[in-house]
């Protein structure tokens, strides 16, 4: 029998609670495929999430999972990883969860470069609470709390993470499944803080209000808006208005927190 993605799931929890056509199920699938490729044992993986539609993802996977509080998944994950650095810790957050209420934790996790792999489900909206704008809602798009269009600038979370010190940063969409899986695998293999932005779609709370009535419209929008970073680098493509790059966006080497702590232990023992 070939690999069946649902073997990584708590079968009794399916079908999941997400709306028809919600991109979260696709991202979760790509994550499960990445876990399969990483070939970790069932007991060394921990999945931590915040609060939001996307954060329900953790509860579906058959590992040690923690569905925490809104915005706080990263400090929970930091505690788990620091207490037991042998664990492979993944963190699932929504765009609002990671960039708004959890924004401070995000930049500090990047700065610490602690060995976590964060997957941000960016549907550009507060899905769970019914479609209020998030810091990642693009300008002029509509939300229930931006009925006349969004007037604030949106975050580019990948650039934010890079500036804050994350050592592996990538972006893919639900249209680019294999890329997304590859980025998660590489992010997990990076010894340090990795952030993977998964551009996903919320047909219910975002698409309907923004002239993308069906899930198909939304996936098409992703296909048309995403430009492979390699093509941009090679000069074969350039970013047009409203487009964003996908692929491995940033990578650098830096000391990792739990490894550095061993140095502290050494110094304390020599004292």
């Amino acid at each position: 029998m070939p690999f069946n993605v649902t073997s990584y799931f708590r079968q009794e929890m399916l079908p999941h609670i997400w709306c028809p056509g919600c991109g979260n199920g696709i991202v979760l699938r790509d994550f499960a495929v990445a876990l399969e490729k990483l070939n970790y044992s069932r007991q060394e993986v921990v999945i931590v999430s915040g609060i939001g539609c996307s954060s329900r993802a953790a509860g579906y996977l058959d590992f040690d999972t923690v569905h925490t509080t809104h915005g706080r998944a990263l400090p929970f994950a930091t505690g788990i990883k620091f207490a037991n650095p042998g664990l492979k810790v993944f963190v699932i957050m929504g765009d609002g969860d990671a960039s708004s209420i959890g924004g401070n934790h995000l930049i500090h996790a990047c700065r610490r470069n602690i060995d976590l792999t964060a997957i941000i489900f960016n549907n550009h909206i507060y899905g769970m609470t019914g479609g209020q704008f998030s810091p990642m809602t693009p300008r002029d798009k509509k939300a229930t709390t931006a009925p006349y269009g969004m007037i604030e600038q949106s975050f580019d979370l990948c650039r934010l993470a890079e500036a804050a010190g994350a050592t592996y940063v990538g972006r893919a969409t639900t249209y680019h499944n294999q890329l997304l899986t590859r980025l998660i695998v590489e992010g997990a293999n990076n010894r340090g803080f990795s952030l993977i932005e998964a551009v996903t779609h919320c047909p219910t709370s975002y698409g309907r209000r923004n002239k993308m009535a069906t899930p198909t419209d939304m996936v098409r929008w992703q296909k048309e808006s995403a430009v492979l970073i390699d093509r941009i680098k090679e000069g074969r493509a350039s970013l047009q208005e409203g487009q964003f790059p996908v692929g491995l966006l940033h990578q650098h080497d830096a000391p990792e927190f739990t490894a550095e702590y061993l140095e502290v232990v050494k110094r304390a023992r020599e004292k």
Binding site: V48, T68, P75, T78, G79, I80, F82, N84, H108
Partner: peptide
């Protein structure tokens, strides 16, 4: 940690890891 919200979150995490 970066604040007290993170501090309590981190210790719950540490405790979940058995410490």
């Amino acid at each position: 940690m970066e604040d007290e919200i993170a501090s309590i979150a981190a210790i719950i995490g540490g405790s979940l890891a058995g410490v």
